[in-house]
Design a protein around this nucleic acid. Structure first.
Lengths: 209, 209
DNA sequence: AAATTTGTCGTAATGACTTCA
DNA sequence: ATGAAGTCATTACGACAAATT
């Protein structure tokens, strides 16, 4: 029987996975209540047969594969065969490993890209906010200036002009902070009204061909 | 109709997975003539041919599972057992199916979220651009107005003032559309480095992180 | 030489297992 | 035992090129 259950040692023992019989006795869940939390062990007894595969490549093997993957995500058959023989694996396994690795890499990458984009977006939103407030402020100032001009044109030069002479230029050139009073005026709204005008852009994104 | 009973419907035949011989003859990399892409090796016969594998739930089963998943992503053992018996599956399979489904749903979700965000971001960038131009324009106008005021204060009222009287207010109050900019002022520059955002998608083939 | 077959590759979707919490 | 995350493997499918006819 050998039964080399030794998890570490039996090289490629390969075996079969589990076997599900076409039909099995369905045990009704009746009598709910009380969940004795019993541990059923790995049972699977029903018709399970026999064998199981040697899942899990050794660390050694994974390291090599990983390294190879680092150099090049694609795998030419040359490299594949070489790796396979070096690691004592079937070339097919190597190929499968690479395929799965690529898939994994892709989704990991997506995750990274997402948070990166999220970041930029948040910053962008804040910027927009600042700019919106600035625009409003400038418009107001401009309006003041216009009024001033009108006044001057109409009335001629008044001896005293404490109006807008000082604030306009200086305030206008200082966008650094916006906390002053732009906030309570209910200025920047949550621009959710993104009328889709660019949706075609990412229509191409998901998948090519 | 005639649901054309599944053609090859041998239900859960379950299979063995493949069989990898512990050792196989690796064909050496028989010298490579240049790089003819992929060389063909007809061979391949070795160690194969045994076992068949088969799994794949029927459409019927998948539909039911899918529907159940739609109602609730989580699966209480009650529902699990019920589904299992209804579909003629091992409860274990149902559980596994749900686990996989959840995992894959998650990544699909991420993908969606990404492109949604991408969209918003792009729009946001354009908006920012518009706002930046508007700010510049307003500042300029304000500057003009200030100069005008200074001039009026200094020189008194001139008989003719073709300067800024008309343009400022009107132009400033019209942000409705943004198609006007970009004509010749050369204002909106790519000052934001968010320009890249898609390059990683195509990074499939080239890779080199 | 052209059309067809065959084998390999890659990707996507899935099934099932293992590990960890 | 369960869910989540990570792995390995298989099936289906499309694209291509070497081998056949």
């Amino acid at each position: 029987m050998t039964s080399s259950k030794n998890p570490q040692n039996d090289d490629q023992m390969l075996l079969i996975s589990q076997y599900y019989p076409g039909n099995y006795t369905q045990q009704l869940p009746q009598q709910g209540e009380a969940k004795p939390r019993r541990r059923r062990k790995k049972n699977k007894g029903e018709a399970s047969g026999v064998m199981m595969r040697k899942r899990k490549l050794s660390d050694e093997q994974v390291n090599m594969l990983e390294q190879s993957f680092g150099n090049e995500h694609k795998l030419e058959s040359e490299r594949k065969d070489k790796l396979a023989s070096e690691l004592g694996l079937d070339p097919r396994q190597v190929a499968v490993w690479f395929q799965n690795r690529r898939a994994r890499w892709k989704s990991k990458k997506l995750e990274e890209e997402y948070s990166k984009l999220k970041n930029e977006h948040d910053i962008s939103i804040v910027d927009k906010c600042r700019l919106e407030n600035e625009v409003l402020k400038l418009k107001e100032q401009l309006s003041e200036a216009e009024k001033e001009i009108q006044r001057l044109l109409m009335d001629g030069v008044p001896s005293n002009s404490p109006t807008t002479s000082s604030l306009s230029m200086e305030a206008a050139m200082e966008p650094p902070f916006l906390g002053e009073f732009g906030l309570d005026n209910g200025f920047y709204a949550p621009e959710n009204t993104y009328a889709q005008g660019l949706e075609w852009v990412n229509l191409y994104m998901p998948y090519h061909m």
